[in-house]
Amino acid sequence: MSAPLLRSGRQYVAAVRAMVLATVALGLLYPLLMTGVAQVIAPDRADGSIVSVDGAPVGSSLIGQSFTDAAGNPLPRYFQSRPSAADYDGTASGGSNLGPNSPELVAAVTERRAAVAAFNGVPESDVPADAVTASASGLDPDISPEYAAIQVQRVASERGVPAAEVQRLVADATDGRDAGFIGAPTVNVLELNLALDRELGAG
């Protein structure tokens, strides 16, 4: 009766040993060694591509953040990021997960469109899709060049500089598709806003 059990038992002994070994080799040695390598070859990137101003970390060039005041109102001197279901909380990445017919989403899009149009003084039809929809990560660092374009005038007038100045900085912060065809063109909002502060003064 116990013969199969015993045979199975042998497999379990082996399994336990194998699991211990794997945990040490794959669970500790491998990631730790890779961390060591990473910290040597690209320490900044390995730690999160943190951007600092005057030695103080202000964010990660890879992670989006909100440019709103404490009450949640958008700050007109900054380019605004996309809506975020996570409120740009780094510890709760994620999207809205609202379905394509969700009434809630329909309402949100309608409301955002009106707000964005009003905030930037453009017709609602000029508001691009990324401006009214939340990203997947809730931490999208980018906006589309179209969304950046409708914000130029507002930022320029807020900062009292010619639109062309701002336009130039937007162009600098704009990346085309990777290798010309992979992904989509982006404008990194944090980098753009940092450039604004750096070059045009932290209005």
Binding site: D47, V58, S60
Partner: peptide, 19 residues
């Protein structure tokens, strides 16, 4: 790729973000 649990940053808008 780090053992650092995360970084606290002060955002441009004056908020804070933990990464």
């Amino acid at each position: 790729q780090t053992l650092k649990a995360g970084t606290d940053v002060s955002t441009l808008a004056g908020g804070s973000q933990y990464l």
